[in-house]
Design a protein around this nucleic acid. Sequence first.
DNA 1: AATGAATGAGTCTTCATTCAT
DNA 2: GATGAATGAAGACTCATTCAT
Lengths: 180, 180, 180, 180
Amino acid sequence: MREQVTAAILEATEDVIATRGLEGASIAAIAERAGVAVGTLYNYFPDRDELIASLFKQRRSDLAPRLAELAHVGARQPAERRLRDYLDGLLALFEEQRKYIRVVVAVDPGGTRGPVLLPLITTAIADILRPGYGKRSDEYAHMIVGCLKLLVRWRVEQGASLAGDAELIAHTFLHGMVKR
Amino acid sequence: MREQVTAAILEATEDVIATRGLEGASIAAIAERAGVAVGTLYNYFPDRDELIASLFKQRRSDLAPRLAELAHVGARQPAERRLRDYLDGLLALFEEQRKYIRVVVAVDPGGTRGPVLLPLITTAIADILRPGYGKRSDEYAHMIVGCLKLLVRWRVEQGASLAGDAELIAHTFLHGMVKR
Amino acid sequence: MREQVTAAILEATEDVIATRGLEGASIAAIAERAGVAVGTLYNYFPDRDELIASLFKQRRSDLAPRLAELAHVGARQPAERRLRDYLDGLLALFEEQRKYIRVVVAVDPGGTRGPVLLPLITTAIADILRPGYGKRSDEYAHMIVGCLKLLVRWRVEQGASLAGDAELIAHTFLHGMVKR
Amino acid sequence: MREQVTAAILEATEDVIATRGLEGASIAAIAERAGVAVGTLYNYFPDRDELIASLFKQRRSDLAPRLAELAHVGARQPAERRLRDYLDGLLALFEEQRKYIRVVVAVDPGGTRGPVLLPLITTAIADILRPGYGKRSDEYAHMIVGCLKLLVRWRVEQGASLAGDAELIAHTFLHGMVKR
DNA sequence: AATGAATGAGTCTTCATTCAT
DNA sequence: GATGAATGAAGACTCATTCAT
């Protein structure tokens, strides 16, 4: 019961941030979207910062194990294969979590106060690349995540699907862009 | 004289946004950083929105012609060569404008209210790529700009130099990552 | 409930304007007089202008029908009789609304932004006089209202009663001043 | 020299108050109208209140002796004759000082902070009436001044002349309104 | 436990006043 | 003396947070 209200509030928060941005996410707006009174929010979260942080924490704790799993799949495989598979799984996850991903690509920066999703992914990719790409792997990881973020943001803005983007990114980083 | 104060205020604004983000850039904070009284800001800018917009407009009007020039260099060259040169020039520009670039990579999204730098670059890159890469060029352009943004943000956070990053990005997109 | 708070705020506004004038009626002063916090005012009125306009609107919509009624009483009577009766009713109304009348006599001018009470009265008196006094009735109406305003302001300042003033004004305008 | 600048500033103040009202008479507006810098005003007047008070004081010290003279004319005459003459002289004075009179009829209330012209006139009229009208003379004086004020304000708004108004008021108070 | 009105600290903005040139 | 940019106190308004019901 308490769980359900908590979940509803977090979902409302996600909605409002996705729609109006972090600054537009006033307590009043969130409460309205959640269909509860302002005071009720404060029965579930101590303050606005904590509420927003909770959204990130919640989604992260949903996604982190799945990301971890993705990262460990085929640990014996060559880096190229693992990258491909990781991106594949990642974008499937994104497609499934479209709403939250809108938040992620809209908000990211800001140290520990943001969704800490992209840093997580960056680390995972760096780890995947390390065996084959050595000290460059951190740079590549940041580059890949940058790609991912802006490409996905663009897709989301256009209401387009993410299908094919894993392959697009993987191929580009492994072999370069494809001439027509 | 008036020019100098205007410039100092814009620089203070840039500083504060780079440090505390757009929302942390209160009039009081900017005035303090600029070493002037609050009221003085209002002798130079009609209100906060206009002040911030002016920063973007100013920097853009400094950078836009140089970006345009970069985009036109070697128009007869093959796309690969042009991309390399463009990124090269771009990162030199970034290095020169480090402070403002911190703002750009920290703030970017947000329609016409932000620095409109990255969209400008995205378009330029797409134009460069179009001859060789056809309909994929928009996707590639977004990807490259994503790379650029996160890589640069990372460099800036670490206080590292951007030298070599143009080559890194260009090579990666043209040929894929380099195995060690 | 909401009605009561609204009424209390309007009354506080009336009080403060009567005491310190329109310019002295700061939001802080009104809130303090009303015994509520500043923010509370904004739960009831969108901004200061609207608050003050509401006071005028409210009082006017209370008084306007009664004024209209007064104006129509004895429509068949001769102008002299009607004027006497109108002033009689008017001053009874004033006596009853002493507080608001302080505002009216302190503030009046200023187009549609003020209490629009005196213009209303001027028109009514001009209409009453027209049959007997022709084109002079507008001048007489302004004169009578001027009399009324300064006489009432004087009475209010002295804490004196308005009883007898209707007769005083009516007699003066009908027959001239009375020698002792 | 100093006199001339002082006079110019006071005239500018008068102008601005007549045009935009007391609240619209900002230091900046007055300085602009006077064609001097803001700082210059403060070489002539210690602060805004003093500046405005000086305008009133100045005009009053111009007008007071003339009013006093008017009040003493025909001291042996009967009250009726004196009232007529006083109003006659007064309105001639008003016509001559149209600009300042706009200020007077626009601003009046506010104790000693306003132009103290009307109270002066009220006293004079009461004194004139006292012999013939006894204890009523104060009331009549306030009434006459009220008449005067609103009638003049109305004339000024309409850009009309004040000729005939002295006779109009005098006759009305002596004999009542004239039927057509 | 839910409600939503009340609260008041924090922001933006204005403008009388000062003071270096 | 004149100038007008700089100053900062004061006022309007917002919104996260509290609390009586």
